[in-house]
């Protein structure tokens, strides 16, 4: 198991946002975590990344207990995140943003090559490499955030709603890229509101409802599940 959450609980003050969840991601999988607004998806990711300290439970990654480990120690272990809202450094240039993604890497020539590789995946970024991150459109910022995460050569990539605020055409492209990244051997945990698209590219899925895992299973099974179809795919049963 590459990533394993066991009995994870997170609270903000007195309010429990995540109420004891178990979740596992196997090496090479693309797993999605779907759920409505406020279900606790982002909170779960933050607990994995050391951005909030869980009240109870464990986060295990590659055989190591990383519960509450400060986030700056995780990249070196191969864990990268594309945060909700993208988290672009607005006053750094596109290229500087990408270089920051490779902050912990010392192998300069390889970093340069990966930079060019990201520019191949997202030619829009190449055209704007000297432009400051804050001037990019929402879609371009999402590409930059994904590219930046790739710059660390992650083993596990955590994506928090890459489709947020994007036009349908672009959402399709971003999902296509996510699928490609997974094919390239990166394990992915994808958080999404767009349940259909997420399940379509995933191997397995978890459905989160008010802090709990309500359903889990193979993506194809979830896509066929009447409850999921009704609640998350907007279909009448």
């Amino acid at each position: 198991m590459l990533l394993e959450l066991a009995g994870l609980e997170v609270a903000y003050g007195g309010i429990k946002a995540v109420k004891g969840i178990d979740l596992a991601v196997e090496k090479g999988e693309l797993v999605c975590l779907i759920g409505a607004n406020g279900a606790g998806k982002t909170t779960t990711l933050k607990a994995i990344c050391g951005l909030t300290v869980p009240r109870a439970g464990h986060v295990r990654y590659a055989g190591e207990d990383i519960t509450g480990m400060p986030s700056y120690q995780l990249v070196a272990r191969g864990l990268a995140m594309v945060p909700e809202g993208r988290g672009i450094f607005r006053q750094l240039t596109v290229e500087e943003n990408l270089v920051m993604g490779a902050f912990i890497r010392g192998d300069r020539p390889a970093v340069r090559r990966d930079l060019e590789h990201v520019f191949e995946i997202f030619p829009r970024l190449a055209e704007r490499r000297a432009q400051s991150g804050g001037t990019l459109s929402g879609g371009e910022q999402q590409m930059l955030a994904i590219g930046r995460a790739l710059m660390s050569r992650p083993r596990l990539l955590l994506l928090d709603e890459p489709s947020m605020g994007l036009a349908p055409l672009l959402v399709g492209r971003i999902f296509e890229t996510v699928r490609e990244i997974a094919k390239g051997g990166v394990t992915i945990l994808l958080i999404e509101q767009n349940a259909r698209l997420a399940l379509e590219i995933s191997t397995r899925g978890y459905v989160m409802e008010s802090g709990r895992i309500a359903l889990a299973g193979r993506a194809t099974d979830l896509l066929a599940d009447p409850k999921v179809r009704e609640a998350y795919l907007g279909e009448a049963t």
């Binding site: 990344c49 700056y72 988290g87 450094f89 920051m100």
Partner: peptide, 14 residues
Amino acid sequence: RATAQNPEVAGLMG
């Protein structure tokens, strides 16, 4: 500069 602009994300960068 990255830390000044967004410390949380800077941490995620390592």
